[in-house]
């Protein structure tokens, strides 16, 4: 096999794979943020905590009830999404008429509460979650070794992202959603229950975060702080992409994951900050974001 700039292809491909995995999580999480922001006009600071709840949901289902990975992949997002809906109905819905910043502060408070509670009961050391038997092992692709589970994470994220994109951009339900984003009063006048749609949208966005959490559980250890630092990177991803476009959020997420992976190969010290540096460059050149409209 060829060598690129003195980097063995196995190393390059390995880091690209990790980048793609991280990118999958960035994409699913920033997609959820964008969907929520589009309709609710709030930035869901609790998104990282809800991602963590998804992972814990899978862990709890396995350890307390014996329910395995595959049912958990559906059940955990539904449960976490339902909790999200309860939060939206009782608290977040009271803030729609106020400055957007209050939504940020409220969800930040919720994130602190959720993370604090989980830290109390489960500590910070992290809990193991095994890869499901069907996805153990890996494939030898000739130029690299691909663990089955990692391949699955990428495929599942791509499918979920494009499924969401299709639903919002190509279906009737999605057209209501886009219309309500533009002008909620008018859509309400057509007899569509906009408040219910807002509630379900929040539940869906939260469910997406929880889904990413379940996907992440076998890769990273299940840890109360797993979402806290991730969400800040996802915020940077959202600033880079702009939240005006669903496809934009998906492409930016995957793209930045890959760039981060490449940075880890060529300049490892910079890998933690490369996304923030890109954010600074984007702010200088195109402040509204790569796919953004003036918001």
């Amino acid at each position: 096999m060829f060598e690129l700039l003195g980097i063995p292809p196995q190393v390059l491909m390995g880091q690209l794979l990790i980048g793609l995995i991280n990118g999958s999580f960035y994409a699913v999480l920033s997609l959820g943020l964008a969907v929520i922001f589009g309709l609710l006009n709030i930035i869901n600071f609790a998104h990282g905590a809800q991602y963590m709840m998804g992972a814990f949901g899978a862990w709890m289902l396995l350890n307390y009830t014996g329910i395995g990975y595959w049912p958990a992949l559906i059940l955990s997002p539904i449960v976490v999404g339902a909790i999200g809906i309860a939060l939206e109905r009782t608290m977040i819905s009271r803030l729609y008429k106020l400055d957007h910043l209050y939504g940020l502060l409220l969800t930040f408070g919720l994130a602190l509460i959720i993370q604090g509670l989980f830290r109390n009961y489960y500590g910070v050391s992290g809990l193991p979650y095994a890869i499901p038997p069907a996805l153990q092992g890996g494939q030898n692709l000739g130029f690299m070794f691909l663990p089955n589970y990692r391949g699955w994470v990428i495929i599942a994220s791509v499918v979920v992202c494009f499924g969401t994109w299709f639903m919002i951009e190509k279906t009737r339900l999605g057209s209501y959603l886009r219309a309500a984003t533009e002008n909620p009063e008018l859509v309400g006048a057509f007899g569509i229950n906009v408040p219910r749609m807002i509630t379900l949208t929040y539940g869906f966005g939260v469910g997406l975060a929880a889904f990413a959490g379940v996907l992440a559980a076998p890769i990273y250890s299940v840890n109360p702080n797993m979402g806290a630092d991730l969400i800040i990177v996802v915020f940077a991803v959202v600033v880079i992409g702009g939240m005006g476009s669903i496809m934009g959020a998906i492409l930016t997420g995957f793209g930045l994951g890959i760039i981060e992976g490449l940075t880890r190969v060529f300049y490892p010290e910079g890998s933690a900050v490369v996304i923030f540096v890109i954010m600074a460059i984007v702010l200088m050149i195109k402040p509204e974001g790569l796919f953004g409209n003036n918001a």
């Binding site: 608290m91 502060l105 409220l106 930040f108 408070g109 919720l110 994130a111 602190l112 509460i113 959720i114 993370q115 604090g116 509670l117 830290r119 109390n120």
Partner: peptide, 11 residues
């Protein structure tokens, strides 16, 4: 619990 209390004050 301090984090939880701070979160509650926020909310």
């Amino acid at each position: 619990w301090v984090t939880v209390i701070q979160g509650c004050i926020f909310v």
